[in-house]
Nucleic acid binder design. Structure first.
Lengths: 354, 354
DNA sequence: TTGCCCTATGTTAGCGATAACGGAACCAGA
DNA sequence: TCTGGTTCCGTTATCGCTAACATAGGGCAA
């Protein structure tokens, strides 16, 4: 365990410590101290120990601001996401963080609250720290944001979504096809009168694309969405209950409800069970994301894994690889599309034969 | 909407833009450009427009690394938390973030995974960027971490917990008393045979303190905990179910279950309802945190609000105030203790009379 | 001994911005 | 005309560190 006592003079003067202090305390040049603390270059074992000892006793912490300016290298990776309260993004983050841990790179998180203008300013702020890489959720950005990304001078990975054009690398799933496949599964199970419940947020492009794909899938079977219910605000169980109740009162004939996320789906499921609905016989349900929460519900809600953690990992891998290559950062952009799979759970009938 | 086209020469040469480029493009000195971009000092309206125009057309993004080094001022606030998947910490973060938004300060998040060693290194890493302030979850740190905080040269706020000594300012609740009050409420409602279900993590000091306070509260009534069940891993509904089942099989006579968080409490509640237990008549239940999730459950779980968002806000306010004062950062440390209140919900009997 | 390589350390010159000060231009009042 | 005060903008000197090069001293072969 490193000791970190305080030099009394420093406490008194409040002068921040610099390399020079360590250099004087250990009797070598600043450059040598720098080498020791960065594990770079040849330093004899004796000086190395001497320097480390001095740094520890002083409680010296290197100044990365100066270091970064001098070396033109920063170990920060900007991560721009729309929200932290969504459960989904912390998991992506966790994948990024785990992958980056080994590389000496460090994620720095920025939250946009689904606002394009905020995304623009968060991006500007981040770029002003000249990060080694950038991970941004989504493919939709303002023109200015897109320009900043293109000129960032660092690898950029846009994540979560592959339905569209990326600035550089892209890692995600096709939400359009996710919606489409879910529609196919529902139709295959014989459901015919289908309702959709989702978020009102116009800036949640992934939810929007799922809905579009879903519509497309139903249309292919000559069906359409019979009723829709939208809400604003975070994803919450209670919202799911309320919306489901409203919809089933309005359209009691529906035989399937497709939710744009698991949380409201779970709320809906609880409500349906309480009401005594025969699930999945009379009424089928499905959500989206495959969150852990669903494991503990009375019935397992049908859903689709959105590969959140893996998306984070793959994105981080790309950044890490590019960051190491250094100046040859003009490697071809990667495009990784992951395949979400349907988890039928207990709220969707098995496919009907014929 | 700002346009951010790219100078073709730059695309070709890949030389990063500097203040000099803007200065040349607009025909004024670097200093003037700097003044314009920071809104500081007197600049005539005509030059101001000229400079902004040039900066925009070039797509210039200021280099805060250089700026911070020169001005010895950084607008970053380090936030060190144990986990992001806990639901609790994102809410704290959200409070911090909302409060900081107005001040030009920016939170930078570090995650420790409940590991003291990791906390130490995260702290070291953060301090190397010389942040304007530091918000750290918890009061328990390694000796070295504590020393770093003490010598950070920036305001430090330790949050969540007030049961112990802080390095500088402290904002939180007393988990010991939270546990104690819950015990009192349970006893007052006439429950006598009480089980506890919680996390195994030895580093979750707040959960530990709640348990200690809880024991103390029971002891005051001549009671003790009849059975305990611990688990490791994140808080999950499924865990709550499994643990509850195991405990009730082992100790069928229990009449109250106290959970260390709402998530496992909710799992337990779902299980109990499925099993047909009379809740809260035959069996009472309570959790901790007051998470939004509980609103949508079939029955509202008794819990206690942990004031997460407000804790974040108050911490951010302290940092913001101190950061403005600048050098006179030796203001007396603040100590703010918030009062969590019991939300009895539907899973605890009303207090028995006499 | 000379010459050369190798290791360990020091010296110099920035990195890209800002603080602090200096000074020019201009106006007003004595 | 001179003084003094604005307003606006430029010059100079850092900030703390590292890249790149320079240098010292030793070992070893010829």
């Amino acid at each position: 365990m490193p000791r970190t006592p305080v030099d009394p003079r420093r406490s008194a003067s409040h002068r921040p410590l610099t390399l020079r202090d360590v250099s004087e305390a250990s009797g070598v040049s600043e450059m040598t101290v720098s080498r020791v603390l960065r594990n770079r270059g040849d330093v004899s074992e004796t000086t190395r120990i001497k320097v480390l000892e001095a740094a520890r006793t002083l409680g010296y912490v290197p100044n990365k601001i100066a270091g970064a300016l001098a070396s033109q290298r920063v170990n920060l990776v900007g991560v721009v996401i729309p929200s932290l309260s969504n459960l989904v993004f912390p998991e992506v983050l966790s994948g990024i963080s785990a992958e980056l841990d080994e590389t000496g790179l460090q994620p720095v998180v920025g939250v946009t609250n689904y606002s394009p203008a905020r995304e623009e300013s968060v991006l500007y702020e981040m770029l002003s720290w000249r990060p080694a890489g950038l991970v941004v959720a989504g493919l939709e950005h303002t023109e200015a944001a897109r320009a900043m990304l293109a000129n960032a001078g660092a690898p950029v990975v846009e994540i979560m979504d592959v339905d569209g054009e990326g600035v550089d690398s892209v890692v995600g799933i096709s939400h359009r096809r996710a919606g489409l496949h879910m529609a196919e599964a529902i139709v295959a199970s014989g459901y015919r009168r289908i309702g959709f419940l989702g978020t009102k947020m116009p800036e949640d492009h992934r939810a929007r694309k799922r809905l579009e794909g879903f519509r497309e899938g139903l249309a292919a079977a000559g069906l359409g969405i019979e009723d829709t219910e939208f809400y604003s605000g975070g994803s919450a169980l209670l919202k799911g209950r309320e919306m489901t109740e409203a919809m089933m009162r309005r359209s009691p004939d529906l035989d399937f409800l497709y939710y744009s996320n698991d949380m409201i789906g779970a709320g809906g499921l609880l409500w349906c069970l309480e009401q005594g609905y025969d699930v999945p016989g009379r009424l089928g349900l499905a959500g989206f994301n495959g969150v852990e929460l669903l494991q503990g519900l009375p019935r397992r809600l049908a859903t689709m894994d959105s590969c959140r953690r893996e998306i984070g990992q793959r994105a981080a891998q790309i950044i890490a690889a590019r960051a190491c290559e250094g100046a040859s950062a003009d490697a071809a952009p990667e495009r990784i599309e992951l395949e979400p799979v349907i988890q039928p759970g207990d709220t969707i009938r098995p496919p009907s034969r014929g």
